[in-house]
Amino acid sequence: MTVRLAFLLAALVVLHLMANVALPLGALAPDLFTVTVLMASQRLGAAWGAALGFALGLVEDSVSLTSFGASAFALAMVGGAAGRLAEVLKSDSSAFRFVLFAVGKWSRDLLAWLVSDAATRPPVADALLVEATVAALYAATVGVAVGAFLSPSPRSA
């Protein structure tokens, strides 16, 4: 892991917490935790992605009152799968990153919805078809922009 990558990942985590907990900006804030996990898994591998996803997911879950562990499960799964996918496809183009971030974010929302408390989760149409899709495109745009700060992934070479 390079110093630049470590700094960027840490900055994304702090920015996410500032935007969602300290300020809080609501839907205006992109899901930078998912961007962090996907970036880590693409650059460092599936193990890093899953471990970081588990840790950040627990932090995310701690601010709500129900479904503790749902985000941890979703981010760990997405981190693991994205790392493996990046290794198999060995691509680092902007288009690949956009698709990876968009599909990763949408899958994260789907997995979190599946393991959430059925009594308190929002209806599937609202949560997954509209909100998650818009959030996925937003996170992908931000992810591609952030990724431009980094040199090409060593795992794609």
């Binding site: 907990v21 809080p24 839907a27 899901d31 995310e60 601010v63 009152l65 479904s67």
Partner: peptide, 8 residues
């Protein structure tokens, strides 16, 4: 107030 999606 927390603005995170899911804990509004």
């Amino acid at each position: 107030r927390l603005g995170r999606r899911g804990s509004e």
